[in-house]
């Protein structure tokens, strides 16, 4: 039989309090579900010990694809009609590398955007609960869960860390 669990969000004023709460929650055996913040705080990120994002692989794949697309496009159009000037090559390396370079950047950025939205799971329009509008403004939020029997301990723990407790109600549209 599954144990009933309770989720509690603590809202903090500073990144230091947030990082301290994150470490404490882990040490005390609570489950850390989500952490929100108005800025990409390194202090909080360090406390979370998040792995490196894989967005870069999408960017790299886009860039490599782009170079070949650009270069091959220029070569393709040049070979549709051989316009020979002064015996110069039809598939000219230097000018086509310029086209390849621009396409490298363009497709790398497309890959970057694709990587960002797929990895961060955006867009996401469903409700997020619990949520507080101040989380994008000036509050850090830590959502933790525990067995319902330990609920009061979790409340006390978060309050001791300086949190304002946010009940699990209402979401962000």
């Amino acid at each position: 039989m599954a144990t009933e669990r309770t989720r509690v969000m603590g809202l903090f004023d500073t990144e230091g309090q947030t990082a301290s709460a994150i470490r404490g929650l882990r040490n005390d055996g609570y489950t850390l579900e989500r952490v929100h913040g108005p800025i990409p705080s390194h202090v909080v990120a360090d406390a979370l010990a998040l792995p490196k994002s894989r967005v870069g692989w999408f960017t790299l794949a886009g860039g490599i694809t782009g170079f070949f697309c650009g270069f091959l496009l220029a070569a393709f159009t040049a070979t549709r009609w051989h316009l020979i000037v002064g015996g110069k090559p039809i598939v000219a390396l230097v000018p086509f590398v310029i086209v390849g370079f621009e396409f490298t950047i363009l497709f790398a950025v497309f890959g970057n955007v694709l990587g960002l939205i797929s990895q961060a799971r955006l867009p996401r329009f469903g409700p997020v609960t619990p949520y507080d509008p101040r989380l994008t403004g000036h509050k850090f939020g830590v959502l933790a869960s525990c067995e319902t029997a330990r609920k009061n301990d979790l409340f006390r723990f978060l309050e001791a860390k300086g949190a304002e407790i946010k009940a699990d109600e209402g979401g962000q549209p």
């Binding site: 952490v35 990409p40 790398a108 970057n112 960002l116 867009p123 997020v128």
Partner: peptide, 20 residues
């Protein structure tokens, strides 16, 4: 796009912004 400031979002966002 449903941005909520989750650190899971920030993790990818900061990396993506750096590459941008």
């Amino acid at each position: 796009l449903g941005w909520t400031g989750e650190f899971e979002q920030w993790r990818h966002y900061t990396r993506g912004y750096l590459f941008f």
